[in-house]
Design a protein around this nucleic acid. Structure first.
Lengths: 161, 161
DNA sequence: TAAAATTATCTGTTGAAACGACTATTGTCT
DNA sequence: AGACAATAGTCGTTTCAACAGATAATTTTA
């Protein structure tokens, strides 16, 4: 986590109003929150959280190969420090299966079940429609631009492809 | 909440891969989550949540005029269905004050206290530095572009200013 | 090979979010 | 005025997230 001291930004460079940077953050927050709320309505109809959906999605990608809990955790978008209990809930609903690996009994491997795949499939269309509603009015060019800017925000080194 | 039936998007229009729209959403999510995590570290040093910071910030803007709980709630970025207890916590720390309005005894008005203002002031610099770290490498043009795209995403009607 | 360190996951606890139901106050309609 | 509805905020409960510490299995080190 790179840290620059605040002193690197001397007072006379401080904008009088909230900085453009803060504005960008607030817009990002607001926008994310709007879209997430709409998504959650869709997910809610299937009694699932976006976190859970994300986990299932990742498991589906590699299926039928299992994924260790830690590997799954690392690939999640939002860092989840509580994989265990999230997987508990999915397991109780028989959407995933857990197996302790034999050649290394510390790791627990997770796979998506048929029921889990089916649920994903059911969600796929409404969630796709949701994203269409949210971004459908933007041109392809605007979308790639947005995506590139978001990437550039996260990764200072690699600018637009 | 406008709803289009999924049928409006016939199968042969479905992209083989995840749609650009979904990609945009995931980028937005990822980016927001990254930035938020960094912010929370800063806020954490002051034992405050971003929600609470937001509330204080809004109160500061209108200070010394008080703001009704409902008005505050509506201006919050993330809809908070639990204003009461959030304000409880802020009140316990003497960062805000609550007064029941006399001419309409249903509404409770909130103001930021001197201590609250002081805390905001202490946070201001580190949080500004945080936003600089996060967005400082983007040009002013890129930032306004990003802001405009985010706005356009939320509000289909008004395209870039 | 026994002790120490590391890895991978689990559990306990605490605080906060979500959702509804509830109370109090005011406004409206007859 | 009295009944009914609307508004503003609070409280109760359940569930979830975050952090720390515990447990168990493996690897490293002396």
């Amino acid at each position: 986590m790179r840290m620059k001291s605040a002193a690197e930004f001397p007072k006379d460079q401080l904008p009088k109003f909230d900085s453009l940077q803060q504005q960008a953050f607030l817009e990002l927050w607001k926008t994310y929150d709007c879209l997430k709320a709409e998504e959650e309505i869709v997910f809610g109809e299937f009694d699932i959280s976006s976190q859970q959906y994300n986990a299932l999605r990742l498991l589906k990608v590699v299926a039928p190969t299992p994924l260790a809990v830690s590997a799954l955790g690392q690939r999640m978008i939002t860092r989840a420090p509580d994989m265990t209990r999230m997987l508990d809930r999915l397991e109780q609903r028989d959407l995933i299966a857990r197996v302790r690996r034999d050649d290394n009994r510390r790791v627990v491997e997770v796979t998506i079940t048929a029921a889990g795949s089916k649920l994903l499939q059911q969600i796929a269309k409404p969630i796709w429609a949701c994203h269409q509603r949210q971004f459908g009015h933007l041109s392809e060019e605007q979308l790639t631009q947005l995506i590139n800017l978001l990437r550039a925000t996260r990764k200072p080194e690699d600018e637009p492809q």
